[in-house]
């Protein structure tokens, strides 16, 4: 095994909830991310799935250092990411980690030409492309993401949603990063266009050896692109494993319910599929339930679930901790049990 490119340990991000106009008083915390750990290997895609409010986008922001974490650590190529850093150190870190955002309509400056948007990273990192070379580099990038290189002088509004997302990807690629955090990159796009962009992301990964953190709520999309998957619920990872382990042998009740809720595009399976329906909505991350956070919607919940927070560990059927951690994959449930039939 090679060393992971990114190691995240116990990452926590709480947002204070304040009251008062002049004398602000903190009355609570939104626990957006509450103790998340994972490794990202080189050339690998880690999918992060979960519903709205589970903290997946906050995770992206903290990893990009757009938000300062409350606690926890992350090592990028063995070096600490969150400690005090000089501007130069931060700049070099950001060169290696780029982001692709969800909304291609608001993430591109409407007053700039595509050439300026994609070329802007070079202003900050002139060492990547000397001034005279920039135009050529930008055109190369446009070509790489499947856009016409002659369109450098056009403005974002002259492009469709899918094309704009390609521009966002070109901008992320400009500095030859090692890791790209993709925060719902295809969810604003129509299916036929979504497939084009997903294929592009796949091609770029093998061409440039990129590692992706792929955040999405669409489980089909995540399966398609990911090598490993982490399922999040209310700021915590409830289950993590390879794409196959999560989709074919999910252990955590939430993962099972989530997979079971996804409609299958095959009318002949209608009413023949085992379905798990959750009741209610996700509780507020400002006051998450005690113990296991999923217990308020879980059909397996017992007293212990309210008292004791289940840790994320490899478990046997029935929820006991497995003595041999090499087998199976970690899940955070007192009553974890494999279910092989949720997907089809």
């Amino acid at each position: 095994m090679t060393e992971p490119i990114l190691q995240v340990r116990d990452l926590v991000k709480h947002f204070p909830v304040q009251q008062g106009v002049v004398f602000k008083k903190t009355i609570g915390h939104v626990r957006a991310v509450d103790g998340v750990s994972f490794d990202l290997n080189r050339g690998e895609t880690l999918g992060v799935v979960g519903e709205s409010g589970c903290g997946k986008s906050t995770l992206a922001q903290v990893l990009m250092r757009l938000e300062q974490p409350t606690s926890g650590s992350a090592l990028f190529e063995g070096a600490d990411m969150f400690g005090k850093k000089s501007a130069a150190e931060l700049r070099s870190l950001r060169r290696d980690m780029q982001v692709v955002l969800q909304d291609p309509y608001t993430s591109l400056n409407p007053r700039k030409t595509v050439g300026d948007i994609i070329g802007e990273p070079f202003e900050i990192h002139p060492e990547v492309a000397p001034k005279g070379d920039r135009q050529r580099r930008v055109q190369e990038l446009l070509d790489t993401v499947g856009l016409n290189p002659e369109h450098v002088r056009r403005y974002p509004h002259q492009f469709s949603g899918g094309q704009r997302q390609r521009i966002g990807i070109a901008r992320a690629l400009a500095l030859k990063p090692k890791v790209i955090v993709c925060d719902e990159p295809v969810s604003a796009l129509d299916v036929s266009i979504q497939a084009q962009v997903m294929n592009l992301l796949g091609e770029l990964q093998s061409e440039f050896g990129l590692s992706y953190i792929f955040i999405a709520h669409d489980l089909g999309v995540v399966r398609h692109l990911s090598d490993r998957v982490a399922v999040m619920y209310l700021g915590k990872v409830v289950e993590t494993g390879t794409e196959d382990q999560i989709y074919e042998h999910p252990q955590h009740p939430y993962t099972q319910a989530l997979l079971s809720s996804v409609p299958v595009p095959d009318p002949s399976l209608r009413n023949r599929r085992e379905t798990i329906r959750l009741s209610g909505d996700v509780p507020s991350p400002a006051s998450p339930p005690s113990g296991c956070r999923f217990r308020t919607r879980c059909w397996k919940a017992e007293d212990i679930c309210a008292e004791q927070q289940p840790e994320l560990a490899v478990r046997l059927d029935g929820g006991e901790l497995a003595p041999d951690a090499e087998q199976g994959h970690p899940s955070a449930c007192h009553f974890a049990e494999r279910n092989e039939h949720v997907v089809s």
Binding site: V191, S192, I193, Q194, A195, Q196, M198, N199, G202, D218, L219, G220, V221, R223, H224, E243, D244, Y247, L259, V262, V264, P265, D266, P267, S268, V343, S344
Partner: peptide, 30 residues
Amino acid sequence: YKRPAHPYTEGLMESIPRLDQKGEELASIK
């Protein structure tokens, strides 16, 4: 769903990433 009778429908169906299979390249509509 069994047999689409229009190339557009066919293209749409092939573009969805399926939950029950890990695909390689998705067939997209150009």
